[in-house]
Design a protein around this nucleic acid. Structure first.
Ligand code: SF4
Ligand code: SF4
Lengths: 137, 137
DNA sequence: ACAAAATACTACTTAAAGGTAGAATTTAAA
DNA sequence: TTTAAATTCTACCTTTAAGTAGTATTTTGT
């Protein structure tokens, strides 16, 4: 009942960068230290985010990372999708597989409401909404 | 954003047994086949449930499993607790650690409501509520 | 007594996530 | 031109969940 560490890190990283767009770039060192994410693991995630066109990286000395689009246009669900989380399959509480109103699992009826709330939360929340200083540990 | 396979299996197993209490006992073979859970993995989970005093096992020929208490007294959260899921720590969306109203993470405000719904669902739903035929795949 | 059918136990293997290491490449300043 | 500081890339290690295998033990019917 948790997101993957990678996903959690990604959200916190992107949120932090969104909140520091006034300054030019964020380096991996800065991100790693302020967010207390293992440096090598962080750079791995950054590569993924660059590949997903969420982040633009500038190489070389004084390089770093910045958002590829406005913070207000990046939703949480878009981030999670790149880590293969919260797909239709993964929204399922008992993992019986896709269901319709006839064939449903034992917890379906009680799961529908919170599931939709979470879905809505992920779909409507953008990096702009969550940019604050509360990303640290 | 999913439960562990073990937890999902456990819920389905207990739900099925609760729904078949009219007959005497359920055997591992029967459970494995009707719920399409790998036999050896199932027996491993059954040992855990027996140890957790949720299930009583009868050994020997014609042996099998039955609930250790009335279905109405076993909540989903009690099951999950034995698999170390949905603990205080694990209810956290970004995994920053326990928080109070002053120190909270970026998604906290939007997470509170669905979190509490899920918690309530797990706490108030008993095996009796979910006993139906919808456990199969 | 014996065989059959069931659970219990211990140990191993596989798959996936999490994390680490080191060298290669790029860029800009001195 | 050299050096420093940054990202990129490839490969590896560790931990945990998932799943498998084989044997021992218990019970009941014949
Ligand atoms: S009925 Fe609902 S909870 Fe159950 S498997 Fe289908 S989508 Fe998931
Ligand atoms: S603020 Fe809320 S969501 Fe964030 S870490 Fe704390 S409990 Fe979890």
């Amino acid at each position: 009942m948790q997101l993957l560490n990678s996903s959690k890190y990604a959200i916190r990283i992107l949120g932090y960068i969104a909140n520091h767009e006034t300054q030019q770039l964020c380096s991996a060192k800065e991100l790693s230290e302020t967010l207390t994410i293992p440096y090598k693991f962080l750079t791995k995630i950054m590569m993924k985010l660059v590949n997903a066109d969420l982040i633009i990286s500038i190489r070389g000395r004084d390089g770093g990372y910045k958002l590829a689009k406005p913070a207000s246009s990046i939703t949480i669900i878009e981030i999670l999708n790149h880590f293969n989380e919260f797909s239709e399959q993964k929204q399922c509480i008992l993992g019986i597989g896709l269901c319709d109103s006839r064939k449903k699992c034992a917890l379906h009826d009680q799961w529908v409401k919170p599931k939709n709330m979470i879905k809505k939360m992920f779909e409507t929340t953008t990096l702009e909404d969550i940019s604050s200083d509360n990303f640290k540990q």
